[in-house]
């Protein structure tokens, strides 16, 4: 048995590989979900509303949707169902900082509701972000190619969708390719990013932390680190998934970490995901 499956067992989960459904998010700046549904169904695309997000559909077609005028017009964005949740949990209504913005799925989602300051440190990924901002027709985003640590402005709303080790649903042979050392290295980077992001958060401001990892080191332990070092509280969020773990690998964590959500692929039929909403006290 692989070390990761053993660990998941220790977390009380017998994992299974599930067949992921292709998901899109409607760009409501350009079209309503209802209108897009009519247009794509006319082209024989099977559409099913994703019940746990506002503007998402599972889609099925005999052709590649990338070649449709609707895609090229930026009427939708391919975004896994779970990845559509963090911005909804953040509920941006004011200027929002998107800390690790590329490829731009969440940036373009935030921009539907509020102006965005998007920060990305990787030059190649920044080009992808620019391309997506143009395709989706963004008009209220300012993007920076720089390290998050260079940002020194305060925000009331921050999204930190942190770079992570991913999960076994995202990559073939993920379990063989990854190691606890790699997970630990990622976790250190995540703590560093979160620490800086929290230093940019105004009092009473909201920060959503998310990853597509299901490893506690990259999730619950990072949130515990935030609770230990910053005046923040973990807010209860209302979305699919299980409560965050509060007792794991012989560590007892703050009970409020149960307010986070952890999405197990075999339970939610999505990729693995973790979401936490922090409020600065």
């Amino acid at each position: 048995m692989n070390i990761f499956t053993e660990r998941y067992k220790e977390m009380g989960e017998e994992i299974e590989f599930v067949k992921l459904r292709k998901a899109i998010r409607v760009n409501t700046k350009k079209i309503s979900p209802e209108k897009l549904q009519v247009r794509l169904e006319k082209k024989h695309v099977e559409m099913e509303r994703i019940p746990f997000v506002k503007n998402g559909f599972w889609v099925k077609a005999k052709f590649n949707l990338v070649s449709t005028p609707e895609y090229l017009l930026g009427l939708f964005y391919f975004q896994e169902a779970a990845a559509q949740i963090p911005v909804e949990v953040l509920n941006p209504i004011a200027l929002t900082l998107d800390c690790c913005a590329a490829p731009g799925g969440k940036t373009t989602q935030i921009a539907e509701y509020a102006p965005v300051i998007a920060v990305e440190s990787d030059k190649e990924r920044f080009v992808i972000l620019e391309n997506n901002m143009e395709r989706l027709g963004l008009r209220n985003c300012i993007a920076y190619l720089m390290d998050l640590r260079d940002v020194d402005k305060k925000f009331s709303s921050i999204l930190l969708d942190a770079p992570c080790s991913g999960n076994y649903m995202l990559e073939d042979n993920w379990m063989q390719k990854n190691s606890l050392k790699r997970i630990q290295e990622r976790a250190e980077k995540q703590k560093e990013l979160l620490a800086h992001a929290l230093s940019l958060l105004e009092k009473d401001g909201t920060l959503v932390y998310s990853t597509c990892s299901i490893e506690p080191e990259e999730n619950e332990f990072v949130i515990q680190f935030a609770l230990d070092h910053f005046p923040v509280k973990v807010e209860k969020i209302n979305c699919i998934g299980d409560p965050g773990l509060t007792k794991i690998f012989e560590r007892k964590l703050d009970p409020s970490i149960a307010n986070c959500r952890r999405l197990w692929p075999h339970k939610t039929n999505t990729i693995g995901f973790f979401i936490a909403r922090l409020r600065k006290c």
Partner: peptide, 17 residues
Amino acid sequence: NLEKIKLKQKEKYFGIF
């Protein structure tokens, strides 16, 4: 309006491209 909210660093993308 966007000028008022930007960071002090040089941006690469600004509002309407």
